[in-house]
């Protein structure tokens, strides 16, 4: 490939990317606007919270228990090298509340609900259901997309709170019940070590991740090519791009909130 062609293709891809980013931002702004202006689609919102939130509960709880348990195990091993097993509670709580809770919850929701959001919207586009809504004078973005994005923003903080609680419980199980750290030390140190800013930071992260997951998955599904391959590709892209964005955003937010 000649240099000229190379530059040209880089330029074209660059322009495409900027165009897509711009469109996705307009898409997000419109969805949020439709979401918070009447007539409200309360039923649709509750359905979506049930789908994104309630149905993700089991997988989030399982992930949280084992994350907490492995943190208990690893933390005990590391801390006992310095003879400070008593700090186990703080170590587990801080890692989960600041970092692992929001990130792992968001990744699990992406895998479980995000992929199916993309597939659902992509198939609605493919089978002309989106056009049918438009023809019935129902705004498809307001009806299909807005409730999903709002549900993501509402569900993620709650799921994260549950993750945090269950994770700390998992650490307690391993640290206190199995390895014999004193219960008073586990919870006592935790109360001292965890500050309001830690909880607040985790909360902000979980809202941001909820927005990112539902936004990316809805956008990619809505503009998927209306073919079988198009929807399949869109679903993969949605999961990959959401997951990477969560990790990138996690770094950005951590550095801002620290």
């Amino acid at each position: 490939m000649s240099l000229e062609n190379f530059v040209r293709s880089v330029g074209r891809r660059g322009l495409d990317l900027v165009g897509t980013l711009g469109r996705s931002l307009i898409f997000l702004i419109l969805s949020l606007f439709y979401g918070i202006t009447p007539p409200f689609k309360i039923r649709r919102l509750i359905e979506q919270i049930k789908f994104i939130g309630v149905k993700s509960l089991i997988i989030v709880i399982i992930t949280a228990v084992f994350t907490g348990m492995v943190l208990g195990l690893q933390g005990y091993y590391t801390l006992s090298k310095f003879g400070s097993q008593g700090l186990l509670g703080s170590a587990v709580a801080l890692s989960i509340i600041r970092e692992l809770g929001p990130v792992l919850t968001a990744l699990m929701v992406t895998g479980r609900a995000g992929s199916s959001i993309t597939a659902e919207i992509g198939i609605m586009q493919m089978t002309e259901q989106i056009k049918a809504l438009d023809m019935m004078a129902v705004n498809p973005v307001k009806y299909v997309v807005s409730p999903k994005i709002l549900a993501g923003i509402i569900s993620l903080p709650i799921l994260t709170a549950i993750f945090d609680l269950v994770g700390i419980g998992g650490g307690y199980l391993v640290g206190v019940k199995m390895l014999g750290v004193s219960e008073g030390a586990y919870f006592g140190e935790m109360v001292h070590a965890v500050e309001w800013v830690d909880v607040y930071g985790g909360f902000v992260k979980s809202i941001a991740f909820g927005l990112i997951v539902s936004w990316i998955c809805c956008f990619i599904g809505y503009f998927a090519r209306p073919t079988t391959e198009g929807v399949a590709e869109a679903t993969t892209n949605a999961v990959v791009i959401s997951s990477v964005s969560i990790l990138v955003m996690d770094y950005v937010l951590t550095s801002l909130l620290l």
């Binding site: 089978t127 002309e128 259901q129 056009k131 049918a132 004078a137």
Partner: peptide, 19 residues
């Protein structure tokens, strides 16, 4: 346009029923 669409009905090729 939405007001006008209330006077239109459309039968899509695949039906486009909500699953």
């Amino acid at each position: 346009l939405f007001e006008l669409r209330k006077k239109m009905g459309m039968l899509f090729q695949g039906g486009a029923l909500f699953n």
